[in-house]
């Protein structure tokens, strides 16, 4: 049995707007083990992106516990969260979020430049390796605008891999892609998982959720169903 990378208990997130409280997450419990491939799904507004933000240390919970690699990270300050995010987490966004003014190689190198003390030669080597892993090394001097959507998302995956993170967080990674490119990206994630990567993916498309080993279903800020795909299907 693999050890836990992420352990979340009684996590809540409340947004305050004027005098209105919005409970985006209400007492969420979840665990992701090393090497696991987890899909989070649920209808729009169920809190899956909020949960992913907190898991990715982009946001902080209102209450509850969150351990990443055995360390409590729920109440870290901004700088510590940035540092951990840079070293432990790789993001794959729905809209790729490549920086248009940077070349493919520079985009992939970007998180490494925020890592103090990494020599330029090592950065270059990692960029090369990551791009080769997603079959985009031949486009490293191109700019994002010169690539197709699928290619851009592969570059985004390479960027997420470059820092050798503990976990890949993918937010609707196929949301902006046609079905063919979407399938290609999902295949790539599957390959990465097969090579040992831990992945947590948000998706509302059951076809893509099916690629994961385990699914977590959210509704109204709560985990309403959790289990292996086959188990969930049987329960349904």
């Amino acid at each position: 049995m693999a050890d836990s990378i992420i352990e979340i208990e009684q996590l809540t997130k409340v947004f305050y707007t004027d005098e209105i409280e919005t409970h985006a997450l209400s007492g969420v419990h979840m665990q992701i083990k090393r090497g696991e491939y987890v899909a989070m799904s649920g209808p729009s507004g169920c809190g899956k992106s909020t949960l992913l933000s907190i898991i990715g240390l982009l946001d902080t919970p209102t209450a509850g516990r969150y351990q990443l690699n055995g360390k409590e990270v729920a109440n870290l300050d901004f700088a510590d969260r940035s540092r951990i995010r840079n070293q432990e987490i790789g993001f794959i966004f729905q809209s790729f979020n490549l920086i248009g003014d940077l070349s493919v190689a520079e985009n992939v190198e970007l998180p490494l430049t925020y890592r103090a003390g990494m020599p330029a030669a090592e950065r270059k080597a990692r960029v090369q390796e990551s791009l080769e892993r997603v079959n985009m090394a031949h486009r490293m001097r191109h700019y994002p605008a010169q690539l197709s959507g699928g290619q851009q998302q592969r570059v985004a995956v390479a960027r997420a891999l470059a820092g050798s993170p503990s976990i890949l967080l993918a937010d609707e990674p196929t949301g902006n892609l046609d079905s063919k490119n979407g399938e290609a990206v999902m295949k790539l994630l599957k390959e990465l998982h097969d090579e040992g990567a831990t992945i947590c993916m948000v998706t509302h498309d059951p076809r893509f959720a099916a690629h994961a080993e385990r699914q977590i279903h959210l509704f109204d800020g709560k985990v309403v169903a959790e289990g292996e795909l086959s188990q969930l299907m049987a329960e349904a």
């Binding site: 990715g56 982009l58 901004f78 700088a79 940035s82 540092r83 995010r85 840079n86 070293q87 993001f91 966004f93 979020n97 920086i99 970007l110 998180p111 925020y114 890592r115 960027r159 820092g163």
Partner: peptide, 9 residues
């Protein structure tokens, strides 16, 4: 995006 990738302020 830069901040999400770990850039410090």
């Amino acid at each position: 995006i830069r901040m999400a990738l770990g850039a410090q302020r």
